[in-house]
Amino acid sequence: MAMIEFNHVNKFYGQFEALKDINLNIERGEVVSIIGPSGSGKSTLLRTINGLETIQDGQLIVNGFDLADKKTNINTIRRDVGMVFQHFNLYANKTIIENITLAPHIVQKRDNDKLKVEAMKLLEMVGLADQADKYPKQLSGGQKQRIAIARALAMNPKAILFDEPTSALDPEMIGDVLEVMKKVAKQDVTMVVVTHEMGFAREMADRVVFMDEGQILEVSDNPVEFFNNPTEPRAKSFLSKVIAR
């Protein structure tokens, strides 16, 4: 069974149709990049997966749970689906290590001492073990984003949603964050990555989804081929602009 299944999903903001007839299956362990121009619905699509945005129509099944079903407890899905935000959203009132251990402790009721040990391992993985007792505002953007990834991983998620994780970063910070994402991609966690980093999409993604105006226009299971030779004209024009940049 697929990790994430969109069947004819529509989403409206009032009259405006933000997502139009979305059909997409994302398999367990798969790395999928969603690209497309601003306002094309990429982030909206991503945010429907963990219920930050609701859908009006169609069927969306995540980890076996139907999001439109009133009996589905959204918190159950969110326990297994982490999220990394463009603006990090680290808990400002918690230290770095608390940012990582808080949810596993209070949501999954895991032992705090063991969690601290695990959190230190995660901090080592993202190269920030020396920052454990600092507060988020003492860190740079790139460091914050690596912590945010560690925070998501601490829940042992089945999937992680990345919402433009490098878009708010200074160019010299992007590399460190992409390094960490590559490490995550090698694990068996499902990744859905909305990104403007074409390098990551080309190199790491199993599939690339191209969106425009709320629709999925092209899905390619050969990213290298897609970037060299997009079939859809709008993808072609988009890529020529991004790559020329």
Binding site: L52, N75, R78, M83, F85, N89, Y91, R151, A152
Partner: peptide, 17 residues
């Protein structure tokens, strides 16, 4: 900021948590 809510809820916390 709304981002604090969204991060906490995405982390599996309930509204009250």
């Amino acid at each position: 900021p709304t981002g604090q809510w969204e991060a906490a809820r995405s982390n599996g916390m309930t509204y009250l948590q």
